[in-house]
Design a protein around this nucleic acid. Structure first.
Lengths: 253, 253
DNA sequence: GCCGGAGTTGCGGAAAATGGAACTTGCGTT
DNA sequence: AACGCAAGTTCCATTTTCCGCAACTCCGGC
């Protein structure tokens, strides 16, 4: 196995709950000799992937990661349009918005625009949610064929709340509804008390797809506002689809 | 030279202007044979550092980078306090705020909070500014001894505007003023028409230091508001210093 | 069908990573 | 102050990977 693979494994050891790593922790987590871990972490630091905290023992991700990550979406016109659209929606409605992408059965936040309301979702960028149990996820899944979706979910679903799809058939039904209405909706699913609307946009040529999402406290939302937001999101998505040249979108809506 | 070093060099090839890389580009930029570049990029993709765009030729940073980058600051209590403080300042004054750190003679944005005003600095996270020619940079430099600052700037300064320090002595003078007042100020320096106030906070035990910064359109700012903001920033910094246990800060103010 | 640029693959020599064990360091205990 | 202990580093022979060259494939344009 190449060093790069191992280095990537090290990076994946970092989590919200474990933002720093010592040599011993890394060695245990990756089941490697301490000597290997010691040299690897040092090499990663020398290369800029990690930095050594001032105590001299704990390693954390390096600034280089921040610099590079920030360019992740730079090459994607789709992302820029999506991000701009979400910003406009946030400005207009005051709720929190974000742009996400799908990776297998999970969705990952790529950008985050806190709104004016009280919703304090700590940090959605870089964190993963189950695709079946979130509006963003179902909006993105709706772009796949049922057959492809089935292939993604071989096992049983693990619904985090009673308002999430409880089994695969319910997931498909919810997704079918997304295809009809153009938008996905969640209430009280991965985050308690939080509702969300999501719309997917994509570039059919590249297969790239992103979801625009607006999240709000379930308690303060009115049906009228929700309808208005869904319409506004669809309008933004249509604008983006036209700009990108996504003809399939026009068909769907 | 280890693969990690080379991989890091590849990652550093990505910029705002070149957000994707082909095998040939990478080979040219890093002066390596195409075969090496080809295998390296593929290995980096297999490990998750890069992803291959749908055209099958262009590589871009991978999602993993976003995930890891987001944890960069998670291990730092100082960063969390600083970010929170900046958010409060942005809420109060409506201008754009950010948190930065210093890397040699440059400062790098770590978090970014767009304000309500019209200032549309596209994206400060992950981008670098000259430390000598920015408020954040001078605020952070002021924590060093003059001797250390001199060691950082061996050559001549390259002031980007007439309001930046034109030579090393002027830089030292501006920094001395930062030490007296506790805050740094810039006008029309790296960004035209933009003014900024910055205050540094740090943990003397670890040596870690960050700058809080508020940026605003130079044209709309009143002297009174600037004073108020500087005071508010100093108050936040003092709160953070107390929380962290930075006694040196108390001495400076 | 040919050309040229872009990217990949096979091969031997060269360089690096690996794991075990011995060694050093830092720290709290007795 | 010596001791024990855990964390981390260094040494070294072995194994694995990497490197650069050159030959090769792939694909679009002419």
């Amino acid at each position: 196995m190449s060093v790069l693979q191992t280095a990537a494994k090290v990076l994946r050891c970092f989590t919200r709950d474990r933002p720093v790593l010592t040599v011993t922790e890394a060695a245990e987590l990756l089941a490697m000799p301490k000597s290997t871990a010691s040299r690897l972490l040092r090499a990663m630091r020398d290369a800029g992937f990690l930095e050594l905290r001032a105590d001299g023992r704990r390693y954390a991700p390096g600034v280089m990661m921040v610099e590079v990550a920030h360019l992740y979406a730079g090459g994607s016109r789709l992302f820029q349009l999506a991000d701009q659209a979400v910003r406009a929606l946030v400005d207009r409605f005051g709720h929190t918005g974000y742009v996400s992408t799908r990776d297998g059965t999970e969705v990952i936040g790529l950008s985050h625009h806190p709104g004016r309301n009280a919703l304090r979702v700590v940090n959605t960028i870089g964190s993963r949610l189950a695709a079946d149990a979130s509006a963003t996820g179902r909006a993105l899944l709706a772009r796949l064929a049922d057959r492809e979706i089935r292939a993604l979910f071989p096992g049983r679903l693990a619904p985090p709340s009673p308002t999430s799809p409880q089994d695969f058939d319910e997931l498909l039904a919810r997704i079918a509804q997304v295809r009809r209405t153009g938008h996905a909706e969640s209430r009280d699913e991965s985050n308690r008390g939080v509702g969300a609307l999501a719309v997917a946009v994509g570039d059919p040529r590249t297969g790239e797809a992103l979801a625009l999402c607006i999240a709000y406290p379930e308690s303060i939302i009115e049906r009228l506002e929700r309808t208005e937001m869904a319409d506004a999101m669809l309008a933004e998505a249509a604008r983006i689809a036209a700009e990108i040249g996504d003809v399939s979108w026009a068909r769907a809506s």
